[in-house]
Nucleic acid binder design. Structure first.
Lengths: 302, 302
DNA sequence: TATGATTGTTAGCCCGAACCTAACAATCAT
DNA sequence: ATGATTGTTAGGTTCGGGCTAACAATCATA
């Protein structure tokens, strides 16, 4: 069977129409080239080149054959390029999983956009999942990166990076007459109000802790838009990330800050601590850089 | 640089997901395969396969890389197939040159049609040229096959095959009052008639020889349709292949057989005597076969 | 839990083939 | 005619792919 060397030698002779020049270009001796070309011709059973001891030219069939030779060399080059880019982390496959509120926070769009411009030949997939499943999916190599709503505790094989900062606020039905309209809401005032609890229940638990009561949970919908809808329908309250104030306006729902120190929220990116796929490593670096830019801008503007 | 062996080994392991089975399939020992896969991985700088001493599977990057591996192997296979088909004369390039009247005789269409069905992957070109140039074009390797109007004398490096048989007839203007309407035309009767001479002037010369006169040549147009037109316009006569009777009807022109033994015409295929391109050799064989079929049919029907 | 079977890796040797130099053959230029 | 240029042939060297043997690691079974 011919190997790539034969194809490279054939292509070189065809380019130069001279064994001497082709041998120089290839860095081999003329006899070596001559013998190898002969081997290829013997194997194929046809002359690729016609030659006097003074001139070399392609035969008719040789001319037709050259198209296939170029194909072989091109695909071999493409394979090595692909290998190089995979090892350098310039291409490959990147699987992102995210909770719905990562899209509201805008971080998902920014990340995917940045990935596409940094790694244009990479395949990037992004699928929404419930927050409960996401860390496990990263652990099990079913996805490479997860975007979840902070805070979250991680098993030792995973590590997280804070990508956006936010804090919890209360979203409550306008039908409720809670004291101090316009002012920060006291946690204790929610003792007897029905609670709608989003996937990230940390805010709810913290408010209950501050108010020293067990929250009266009436529903735990899947998405934040459902949470707000339920708040309106059930004359209830929900403790949700402040970011939603700017993203969602729903008739009958008002937002109130919560009295006391801000309850931290934000989006966290989760990856495997021992990540060894170069593209994913690069993606993490790019994300960190992007986050630094965002926080720098934020620092300047506000 | 990786060569085709590496790609074949990688593909085999990926198919079998086992070094043992892949080695058996490839007909090499397991250690050989193991070392070669390692070489490829070292060269690329990435793991293609992950393995415990009990299981083998593709890495993420390995999966992406396999597409390129398949490309390389497919193009290599295609190249060898092409080489084989070129050697066996099943594909390649076939250049046909023909005189216009070969198309009227139908032989050109039959030939090209037959070529396409026999050699579907071959590239077949057919160009019209003046009869004078065609034998030289074959000699000079500018075309592979020439279809000309018999008779023709050939240089020793060419040889010809009679493909169709025909004979010359007279096409003459109806305005001429030549004796013996409806009967074979006597050559001597054309002594004072203006002659339109087609590319193949043999018929004209033979008629003049039989009539023992120098023909009064008034025009030598390029195509047979022009010859007939000129016959009508110039109240002249032309000695042309009988085949045209069935192909062309032109107002003001009548056809008359010529008295005496039939003056032979027909289409001749010309090729190089030392032709060494397998496709062309096969094309000649196919044409000969086709001609035999045609003559057999003719013998049966008439 | 121990033992044997299965599978991939490492080590050491062998041999084919790619490569080189030298000598040769054939063409072209002066 | 003679020397220069270019491809081929011949013979020796070396690199590396291939093999066997020994090893390591896992899994199955007793």
């Amino acid at each position: 069977m011919l190997d790539l060397r034969h194809y490279r030698y054939i292509a070189a002779v065809a380019r130069n129409l001279s064994f001497r020049l082709a041998a120089a270009e290839l860095g081999v001796s003329v006899p070596t080239l001559s013998v190898q070309i002969s081997h290829a011709e013997d194997y194929l059973g046809m002359q690729i080149f016609a030659r006097t001891s003074r001139k070399v030219w392609l035969t008719r069939n040789g001319t037709v054959f050259m198209a296939a030779v170029d194909d072989v060399l091109q695909s071999a080059r493409a394979a090595e390029d692909l290998g190089r880019n995979l090892t350098r982390g310039m291409t490959g496959e990147l699987r992102v999983g995210y909770v719905g509120s990562a899209a509201y926070a805008g971080i998902l769009q920014k990340m995917v956009g940045r990935f596409h411009s940094c790694f244009p030949t990479a395949t990037i997939t992004a699928e929404e999942h419930v927050m409960e499943d996401l860390p496990r999916m990263v652990s099990d190599h079913r996805i490479d990166v997860a975007l979840v709503r902070a805070p979250v505790e991680l098993p030792p094989d995973l590590c997280g990076y804070a990508l956006t900062t936010d804090h919890f606020v209360a979203a409550l039905s306008q039908d409720l007459q809670v004291a101090g309209a316009g002012l920060p809401l006291r946690a204790a005032a929610l003792r007897d109000v029905p609670f709608i609890v989003p996937e990230q229940e940390f805010g709810t638990l913290e408010v209950a802790r501050r108010g020293k009561f067990e929250p009266h949970v009436v529903s735990t919908p899947g998405s934040l838009i459902s949470v707000l809808t339920q708040v309106a329908l059930k004359r209830a309250v929900a403790i949700i990330p402040n970011m939603l104030r700017t993203s969602i306006h729903l008739e009958g729902v008002e937002f109130r800050d919560i009295e006391g120190p801000a309850i931290p929220s934000g989006i966290v990116g989760i990856v495997r601590a021992d990540e060894d796929i170069p593209l994913v490593q690069n993606a993490i670096a790019v994300t960190a850089e992007m986050q630094a830019e965002m926080w720098r801008e934020k620092g300047v503007t506000g």
